[in-house]
Simulated scan of single mutants.
Amino acid sequence: MSTRIGVRREAGILTTSSRVADNGRVYYQVEVNIKSYASSNELVAMPQEQKTRLEWDRHYLSVLGVENNQLYELRLQTPENVFLEEENDLRKVMDSFRVFKLSA
Rank of each mutant, 00 (worst) to 15 (best):
M1Y: 14
M1C: 14
S2C: 14
S2D: 15
S2N: 06
T3F: 07
T3K: 12
T3D: 08
R4K: 10
I5F: 14
E10H: 03
E10V: 08
A11G: 12
G12W: 00
T15Y: 13
T16M: 05
S17G: 07
S17I: 01
S18K: 10
S18T: 11
V20R: 04
V20K: 06
A21P: 13
A21R: 06
N23L: 00
N23T: 00
V26F: 08
V26M: 07
Y27S: 12
Y28R: 03
Y28W: 11
Q29S: 09
V30I: 06
V30N: 07
V32Q: 09
V32I: 06
N33W: 00
N33L: 05
I34V: 15
S36N: 11
S36M: 01
Y37G: 05
Y37F: 10
A38E: 14
A38Y: 05
N41A: 02
N41K: 02
A45N: 05
A45P: 00
M46E: 11
Q48P: 04
Q48V: 07
Q48Y: 04
E49Y: 02
E49N: 08
E49D: 15
Q50A: 11
Q50I: 01
K51G: 04
K51R: 10
K51T: 15
L54R: 03
E55A: 05
E55Y: 15
W56C: 00
W56L: 00
D57Y: 00
R58A: 05
R58W: 07
R58C: 02
H59C: 05
Y60E: 01
L61H: 06
S62Q: 15
V63P: 04
V63L: 01
L64T: 05
G65R: 01
G65Q: 01
V66R: 04
V66A: 12
E67Y: 03
N68T: 13
N68K: 02
N69L: 14
N69G: 07
L71P: 01
L71E: 09
L71G: 02
E73M: 13
E73L: 09
L74Y: 03
R75G: 08
T78M: 07
T78C: 14
P79Q: 08
E80H: 11
N81L: 12
L84Y: 15
E86S: 14
E86G: 13
E86C: 15
E87P: 10
N88W: 01
N88P: 03
N88L: 07
D89F: 06
D89A: 13
L90Y: 08
R91K: 15
K92N: 12
K92R: 10
V93E: 08
V93I: 13
V93Y: 04
M94A: 11
M94K: 11
M94W: 15
D95Q: 09
D95L: 07
D95P: 11
S96L: 09
F97R: 01
F97K: 02
R98Y: 13
V99N: 00
K101F: 11
K101N: 09
K101R: 08
L102F: 13
L102H: 10
L102I: 14
S103A: 10
A104T: 12
